[in-house]
């Protein structure tokens, strides 16, 4: 039935983790409502906002990295993860 979607394992892992993260954030938000704060991004964010910003920032960095650097994908992923972590913590 899902043959037309041409599933591959890596993409399945990506989307499964997105679903798990969103579900996890929902449950976490239910038991301890998120607090807003203002970090170096200069806008008021709660943790869900920061998660989204971290996600698109990391993705944007990866696109630039792939465009500028040949190979060394793991280095790019590590830097992207670091960027995401910084935004999640201090954004």
């Amino acid at each position: 039935m899902l043959n037309w979607m041409a599933w591959t394992t890596p993409i399945a892992i990506v989307f499964t983790s997105v679903v798990i993260i969103i579900a996890g954030m929902t449950i976490w938000g239910h038991y301890s409502p998120p607090k807003v704060h203002k970090g170096f991004l200069r806008i008021t964010t709660d943790r869900g906002d920061r998660l989204y910003i971290a996600y698109i920032s990391a993705a944007f960095f990866m696109v630039c990295f792939i465009g500028l650097v040949e190979g060394a994908l793991y280095v790019g992923v590590a830097i992207a993860a670091a960027i995401a972590a910084v935004i999640l913590k201090w954004g």
Partner: peptide
């Protein structure tokens, strides 16, 4: 999701496709 799957494969036909990563 389908587009994301397409993006990491070279697809010749529904049954004949090759994973090519990035």
């Amino acid at each position: 999701m389908t587009v994301a799957n397409y993006a990491v494969q070279d697809i010749f036909s529904p049954t004949d496709r090759l994973f090519i990563g990035m």
